[in-house]
């Protein structure tokens, strides 16, 4: 029963990553690209946390209800959660940088179309 729960989270995460990637590749407006990037970022974070999730266990915050000898069989993996916690903060800082660069470049070219930004052409 829990396998459907488990795999649907992975499907959601992979779907978000793919949708965000498609948006980054195909959209024109620079802020729309930043939004798609944020969506892909959310999907990647979901996938990372999912990789450390074990169904039927509790959060890695230990209160008195768990005896010390059974901690390893009672909590989910704390390591991916710690990584994702820092990844989220980095993600929003990068998004802020993205938006500021986009705004300044669109000021310079007079349009928000990313195809006209010769400085940013790939």
């Amino acid at each position: 029963m829990s396998t459907a729960f488990y795999w649907s989270i992975a499907g959601t995460a992979a779907g978000l990553i793919l949708v965000g990637l498609w948006g980054v590749l195909t959209r024109k407006h620079v802020l729309r690209i930043a939004l798609a990037f944020t969506v892909a970022d959310t999907g990647a974070n979901l996938l990372l946390v999912w990789s450390g999730y074990l169904p039927g266990r509790t959060a890695p915050v230990i209160d008195g209800s768990i005896p010390a000898s059974e901690i390893t069989s009672a909590v989910v993996d704390p390591l991916p959660q710690a990584m994702v916690l820092t990844s989220i903060v980095i993600g929003v800082a990068v998004a802020a940088l993205f938006v500021v660069v986009g705004v300044l470049a669109s000021r310079r070219t007079g349009s928000a179309d990313v195809r006209r930004m010769k400085e940013l052409r790939w």
Partner: peptide
């Protein structure tokens, strides 16, 4: 997925800070 720390961080950042940054842009 039993990750309350990550949930709090995502809620406070994704719903508030990132949205405000995009609205400014």
């Amino acid at each position: 997925m039993d990750a309350p720390d990550v949930a709090i961080t995502e809620a406070s950042i994704g719903a508030v800070l990132a949205t405000m940054i995009f609205l400014w842009g």
